[in-house]
């Protein structure tokens, strides 16, 4: 069986740009696997999504979706996508748009009703898309992408504009399809959300993949710990301690990122016996991603 996505050595440079947007990027997503593409703005995530969806063609390297060329209509039968900044034809109704996606993908029109119920748009089926809220439009995009049961679903910032409850339901809907073999490639700025749903995170920085592993593995590799304590001590007291990477001082609280939390805790309690509300936490996925991208730029 072909991988759902197999990108090998993808390189792409925008006209006039000094550096390539993507530089020898390889990424594989297997059936049923959920992979999050993370990285700072301008890292090349959306450019890579463009390659996967056939909107762009690499200068070098190959991109195959289910073994096929993503620029071909036949391959796109296997591909679903929720893209950023999409407005629908405003005079078509929700149902017409989802049924239309079904018909164009060669699946029965009747499948639309179930998907509309799945994403919670069944009550709005007769509403014209021009009258939907941002969150409703996002769900409509998802419904259109899901109606053909794609083998690979590409989600570019899919939960942008959704509130916390809607985001939770969004991911719950998708998780139900993992067992059916649907693979997901997603980008999101909400890193912890990616960590919760993805089997693997692929971190892109400067157009290169700088990490590609499970969220637990990525955070586990990071020795950084965050020490947070309410104290009257100034930041300068701990800034020069060995292992301290970053110190923030906000409203009577010191937040110290360090590879040696014991030294920080000892010093704070020695200098300020009234210090309280002390917490030592492992690195978050967001910090691990930042560390991976920092290593790249260092």
């Amino acid at each position: 069986m072909h991988p759902s996505l197999d990108a090998v050595g993808v390189t792409f440079r925008f006209a006039g740009a000094d550096a390539p947007a993507l530089d020898d990027v390889s990424l594989r997503v297997d059936p049923g696997e959920y992979v999050a593409l993370l990285g700072p703005n301008g890292a090349g995530k959306t450019t890579l999504i463009g390659m996967v969806t056939g909107l762009r063609v690499p200068d070098r390297g190959t991109v195959r979706v289910c073994g096929g060329d993503p620029t071909s209509a036949r391959t796109r039968l296997r591909l679903g996508a929720v893209l950023q900044d999409t407005a629908f034809p405003r005079h078509l109704t929700v149902r017409e748009l989802v049924e239309g996606a079904a018909v164009r993908s060669g699946v029965p029109r009747g499948r639309a009703a179930g998907v509309l119920e799945e994403v919670g748009l069944d009550d709005l089926a007769r509403r014209r898309s021009g009258k939907l809220s941002g969150g409703q439009r996002r769900r409509l995009q998802l419904a259109r992408a899901l109606v053909a049961d794609p083998a690979l679903l590409v989600l570019d910032e899919p939960t942008e504009g959704l509130d916390a409850a809607a985001r939770r339901d969004f991911w719950r809907n998708l998780t139900a399809r993992r067992d059916a073999g649907m693979a997901v490639l997603l980008t999101t700025h909400i890193v912890e959300e990616a960590g919760a749903v993805a089997d693997r995170v692929s971190v892109i920085a400067g157009g290169r993949v700088v990490a590609d592993e499970s969220p637990a593995s990525l955070t586990g590799r990071l020795a950084d710990r965050t020490v947070s304590v309410r104290t009257a001590l100034p930041a300068a007291v701990v800034r020069d301690l060995p292992g301290v990477l970053r110190v923030e001082e906000t409203a009577g609280r010191l937040v110290v990122v360090t590879t040696s939390p014991e030294a920080v805790v000892r010093r704070v309690l020695h200098d300020d016996p009234t210090a309280h509300d002390l917490r030592v936490e492992a690195a978050s996925l967001e910090e691990a991603v930042m560390a991976a991208t920092d290593r790249m730029s260092a």
Binding site: L77, R104, G114, E117, R139, D149, N173, A176, D179, A180
Partner: peptide, 26 residues
């Protein structure tokens, strides 16, 4: 948004979908 047990099958995601005819698409 609600969560619904949709009858998704591995076959639908893993097997090729029959392409609609050009006339149907048009």
């Amino acid at each position: 948004m609600t969560t619904v047990d949709t009858p998704v099958t591995a076959a639908t995601a893993a097997t090729a979908t029959r392409a609609p005819s050009t006339l149907a698409l048009l």
